[in-house]
Design a protein around this nucleic acid. Structure first.
Length: 779
DNA sequence: GAGTTTGAAACT
DNA sequence: CAGTTTCAAACTC
């Protein structure tokens, strides 16, 4: 007991020191050391100096490097997106977090770390003893002899938890992670509350340091507090989510509400995001990590103490814990029924999705970290129904995929949102942007891929996930492409087939869309890859210098449409028009050769087409687009080709998704208004597809970008709440063709005349808009 | 899968 | 700005 108290004190001191100095990482390392010290009965100072401590510290940095390396080395094909993601600031943080966590996870499992784990256990021992005194029936470690095992299990579980957390909190920063670990050792009690805010977080650390190790002495109290925290957690989470960020949402314990919350958070996120995006993201991630870590920590102590029940509760309360928290997987399994667990799992999946997918890819390519990944995956899978950490890749992959699918889908739906984010962040220097942009593009690409793979976003995440993975993994790009094309998905993900342009001209769909070419592309001598980022950017600039709108969405939704849509849903004008208009001579604007048709918009005065029969609207204005093709079909001209109609519908829908999305989709509302109207740049920024921002000029910063995806997720995942808002704007504007309401009433749309009313209507839009200025590329 | 058609993009 | 060439997607077989 005394030893434990001492250790706790020393730990507290360390924590304080860490706060001042290194920070979390150190603390984390301390944890194991502490345990060691406890065993050895050494002072905190000693173990700081101890080689083990140094070793641990050295470890943390190593992994980040790894991650970075991966990003660079990763093939653009399957991994490109992922690596890019990592490149982003958030990503970097993520990397760190992940890897760190992985190590942690690995640590327990691996013999190397076994010692550490043993140490931790030892540190916990005093606590355990106290716990034993308390003699909780549930306690696993009632007996000293069993302590080691019990401790080991807890630590193992803890590692799992961390893994899950890391996965879930993809965006977590390493710093956050460290903080989490710290909190874990010191006290899980405060985690949730403090996690809510960065400031609170700091406070939390302080308190933890102060109360710190008291775990031994105050174990019981700590547990009770934890329970209280659990109860309060919901509120905290909510507040946290609302205040902080989207990311958490996915992870947030509140599942059913998570969507709504996520949406809300997403909004708030946007509002605040532009400048603070990174901070918020990291923060949120940190908050999650902290919460999780703390919880896990609390769990560990509790488990050590022999309070398995409490742990369970905690785990349940906290989704994260659910999978791993309980020392007995079976128990968890039993608990699974709890919506909470599933929820947590799902969230994780959402969060993981990206990470999981990446991991998978990584794993496949490099089996090195497979074990860790597998575990994480297994956890994810647990979420699906299997709490047991399965190491089977297949299972894990499935789980991951599932999770990924959801995530990607969400992202995919919101590629534009990314743009926004990026734009908002634009203030960052180009270089940063480049990296970020690359990351963004990659994400977008993946997203697009996902979309391709998954026609219905809402579909099961799993299905989508599979599709995505398959696509990514598939060796032959052509096949994939053909499949995708056949599927009709295609547009979202651009897969070019360039042979001479090196994918550095607008001929290349990928380049034109502002995304890097990916594996599925069958291009030759492709320079449109992160590796050639400089070239891509330079080329982009060049093209933009020639035509500032070159990368702007080809189809512009006029502000009028937005106003109309809002004012009168019935009218939904097909205000959208092709930026420059088509020049068709033989296709009659009834084939995809026609960009207007392809974009699902009617021809306008700007068009110089001959024999226009555009179903969406003829140049002369005669053509009114009904909901979709159907109305148009009425027209004799259109009826000509049933195939055309079908394809048209598909295209129209796709277009709506893709192009409109720019204007309408994800950010539709925002984008539409801003891009077309307010910010001349915005038009550029909003690449019809996704992304430009990603690549280059506009690129958003990684941070923003990253955040965005989450937001998107929320969006999609929880379309209900927010969707209405956004949809209200965007869908109409962007999708009119798709939207039933959408008939084009007024052919003319300047497109730029944004309606202030619209803006006023949405807070988010307005707020977020300001941040975007960067989008308009500094060019 | 190969070949043709088409129109945008790029070039002059 | 117009005309021509290049290019890759869209389409057809």
């Amino acid at each position: 007991m005394e030893e434990g108290a001492e250790s706790s004190d020393s730990v507290a001191e360390k924590v304080k020191e860490n706060q001042k100095g290194k920070g979390v990482v150190v603390v984390v390392t301390d944890t194991p050391e502490r345990s060691k010290n406890n065993q050895i009965t050494t002072s905190a100072n000693k173990f700081e100096d101890s080689p083990v401590f140094n070793f641990l510290n050295s470890l943390s940095p190593i992994e980040p490097v790894k991650s970075t390396h991966i990003t660079q080395t990763i093939n653009p094909l399957s991994f490109a997106s992922i690596p890019s993601v990592f490149t982003s600031p958030h990503v970097s943080s993520l990397k760190g977090s992940r890897f760190l966590r992985r190590h942690q996870l690995a640590d327990p499992s691996k013999p190397e770390f076994a010692t550490d784990g043993g140490n931790t256990i030892n540190t916990n021992e005093p606590i355990i003893d106290s716990a034993n005194k308390s003699d909780k029936p549930d306690g696993n470690l009632n007996q000293e002899g069993s302590v080691d095992e019990a401790v080991c299990q807890p630590s193992y579980e803890f590692s799992k938890l961390e893994v899950e957390l890391s996965q879930s909190a993809v965006y977590d920063s390493s710093c956050l992670h460290s903080s989490l670990t710290t909190s874990y050792d010191l006290s899980a009690k405060h985690s949730l509350k403090y996690a809510c805010t960065s400031s609170t977080f700091a406070l939390f650390i302080q308190e933890a340091s102060q109360k710190g190790l008291y775990a031994s002495g105050e174990n019981e109290e700590g547990i009770t507090q934890i329970d209280q925290d659990k109860e309060a957690t919901g509120c905290d989470w909510e507040s946290f989510i609302s205040d902080a960020t989207d990311l958490l949402i996915s992870e947030s314990p509140i599942e059913t509400e998570s969507c709504k919350k996520s949406v809300e958070s997403g909004e708030s996120f946007y509002a605040n995001a532009s400048n603070n995006m990174q901070n918020t993201d990291s923060f949120s991630a940190a908050g999650l990590g902290e919460q999780v870590g703390e919880r896990s920590a609390s769990e560990n102590p509790s488990s050590q103490l022999g309070e398995g029940s409490e742990l369970k509760e905690i785990a349940e309360t906290h989704d994260i814990v659910a999978g791993c928290s309980t020392s007995n997987p079976s128990e968890n399994m039993d608990d699974e029924p709890d919506s909470g667990l599933h929820r947590g799992v799902r969230r994780r999946c959402l969060v993981f999705e990206m990470a999981g997918a990446f991991r998978k890819h990584l794993d496949e390519n490099s089996a090195s970290d497979s074990s860790l990944l597998m575990q994480s995956d297994g956890n994810t899978s647990s979420g699906d129904g299997q709490l047991n950490p399965t190491k089977d890749r297949s299972d894990s992959s499935r789980c991951v995929l599932a999770g990924i699918g959801l995530h990607l889908n969400a992202l995919a739906t919101t590629p534009k949102s990314y743009k926004f984010v990026a734009k908002s962040s634009t203030s960052a220097p180009h270089e940063d942007l480049l990296n970020n942009s690359s990351a963004v593009t990659m994400l977008e690409r993946e997203i697009s891929t996902v979309e391709n793979g998954v026609p219905s976003v809402e579909d099961d995440s799993q299905a989508s996930g599979y599709v995505v993975n398959e696509e990514i993994t598939q060796s032959s790009p052509k096949k994939k492409r053909s499949k995708l094309e056949k599927a009709g998905e295609g547009e979202a993900c651009k897969r070019c087939n360039c042979k001479k342009s090196k994918c550095l001209k607008l001929y290349c769909e990928c380049f034109a869309a502002g995304v890097y070419c990916v594996e599925p592309c069958s291009c030759m001598d492709c320079f449109n890859k992160p590796v050639h980022e400089d070239t891509v950017l330079a080329t982009r600039k060049q093209i933009e210098s020639r035509n500032p709108l070159a990368f702007a969405p080809k189809v512009i939704r006029s502000s009028d449409s937005l106003c109309e849509t809002r004012s009168d849903s019935s009218k939904t004008p097909a205000s959208a028009r092709h930026k420059r208009g088509c020049n068709c001579k033989k296709s009659g604007c009834l084939k995809k050769y026609c960009e207007c048709y392809q974009g699902g918009v009617g021809c306008s005065i700007n068009c110089r087409c001959e024999g226009c029969k555009n179903v969406f609207g003829r140049k002369d204005g005669s053509g009114v687009i009904g909901t979709e093709v159907e109305l148009e079909e009425d027209e004799g001209d259109i009826t000509e080709k049933s195939t055309v109609d079908r394809s048209f519908q598909k295209t129209a829908i796709q277009n709506n998704r893709e192009q409109n999305p720019d204007s309408a989709l994800p950010a539709t509302p925002l984008q539409c208004v801003r891009s077309s109207v307010q910010h001349p740049f915005s038009t550029k920024n909003k690449p019809p597809r996704s992304s430009f921002p990603s690549i280059g000029s506009s690129f958003g910063k990684t941070g923003i970008f990253v955040a965005r995806p989450k937001f998107d997720k929320h969006f999609e995942t929880v379309p209900e709440d927010e969707m209405p808002k956004f949809q209200g704007e965007s869908p109409n504007s962007g999708v009119k063709s798709s939207s039933p309401n959408s008939k084009r009433v007024s052919p003319h749309h300047s497109g730029l005349g944004t309606s202030p009313t619209v803006r006023s209507g949405r807070k988010l839009i307005l707020q977020s808009i300001p941040s975007f200025p960067s989008l308009t590329p500094k060019h």
